[in-house]
Design a protein around this nucleic acid. Structure first.
Length: 292
DNA sequence: ACCCAGGCGGGCG
DNA sequence: CGCCCGCATGGG
């Protein structure tokens, strides 16, 4: 099977991959001699990707696809999965007016906000709550291995039906802990008719309200799903890192979630999600915002 | 033996 | 609302 080619610019696969978005939890990135290799699965398709850099922020994706889509649609899905379905120049030019964001963008230039599968994104971030990255990846890996379907030799991410009918014990064996019931109930809700695809056309606020009806999906997880699963760039997930960096750089200690959301909406407007992703990475990697 | 992790729900004032 | 607490688990 032949590889398709896709040229991308203003893009860093490494920064995008290692930035805590869903691909981290469901794909595997390895450094080969002349390129990066990434295998990524969704509930319906599997991508096999080699990336050859031709500059610090551009290169060529050589990709193969297994699934139901035609080549054109598959390429569009790939663009979404890697966050290269839009340009970032205009996003950068707006956000760079903020001095801290300017620094973060220089440091993580080419990091994209991905738009992955909503269900898969929801699973990853339900699992992420009160958890650490290492254990999250492990649990997601176990879920894929135990409940993922094999199609054309590719192990796909398990669809809602598989999780809904899984026994509680088998879910606990994946290391889900108290999140097991959250995940199972959410999967059951979907099987019983909650339509994830209907959220695309809702406003950010309306869609967030829908998601937060589920036990186990709170303010932060809902924002992650809307940002990384639907591409709703107004979403501003507030985790401990974001809370600390916003409080120290822009507001004051002990700010409420409401205050931080209002600040983000006012300052970053419809690009709050991109701002969040860069602030999050900067907070984590700079070493300046550790817990104290 | 501890401590903590990309939060959330429930109970309280 | 804002605050506080417990929570399953395993890696450091």
């Amino acid at each position: 099977m032949q590889y398709n080619k896709l040229f991308v610019s203003d893009f860093s696969l490494l920064h995008t991959y290692s930035s805590g978005q869903t691909l981290n939890f469901a794909g595997a990135l390895e450094q080969k001699k002349y390129f990066l290799h990434l295998s990524a699965t969704t509930p319906y398709s599997a991508f096999d990707i080699n990336y050859a850099a031709s500059g610090s922020a551009s290169g060529t994706l050589y990709w193969r696809y297994r699934g139901l889509l035609g080549e054109k649609e598959a390429e569009e899905e790939l663009r979404q999965l890697l966050g290269v379905y839009t340009g970032v120049r205009s996003i950068y030019s707006k956000l760079e007016k903020d001095k801290l964001l300017k620094k973060a963008i220089d440091e993580f230039y080419g990091m994209r906000v991905v738009k992955a599968d909503p269900w898969q994104t929801a699973v990853c971030f339900i699992v992420s709550q009160f958890n650490n990255i290492k254990r999250i990846s492990k649990t997601i890996g176990l879920l894929i291995n135990k409940f993922g379907k094999i199609e054309n030799g590719a192990k796909l991410f398990p669809p809602p039906e598989s999780i809904a009918r899984a026994s509680k014990a088998s879910l606990l064996a994946c290391g889900l802990g108290f999140r097991a019931s959250y995940l199972k109930d959410f999967a059951s809700g979907i099987v019983e008719g909650f339509d994830l695809s209907s959220l695309y056309k809702l406003s950010y606020e309306e869609a967030k309200k829908e998601l937060m009806q589920f036990k186990g999906i709170g303010d932060k997880v809902a924002d992650c799903i809307l940002l990384f699963g639907y591409g709703k760039l107004e979403a501003f997930p507030i985790d401990t890192w974001i809370k600390r960096i916003v409080e120290r750089e822009y507001l004051h200690r002990r700010s409420s979630l409401k205050q931080i959301h209002e600040f983000a909406a006012e300052r970053f407007d419809g690009l709050a999600g991109y701002a969040q992703q860069y602030l999050f990475q900067y907070a984590r990697k700079s070493g300046l915002y550790a817990r104290r």
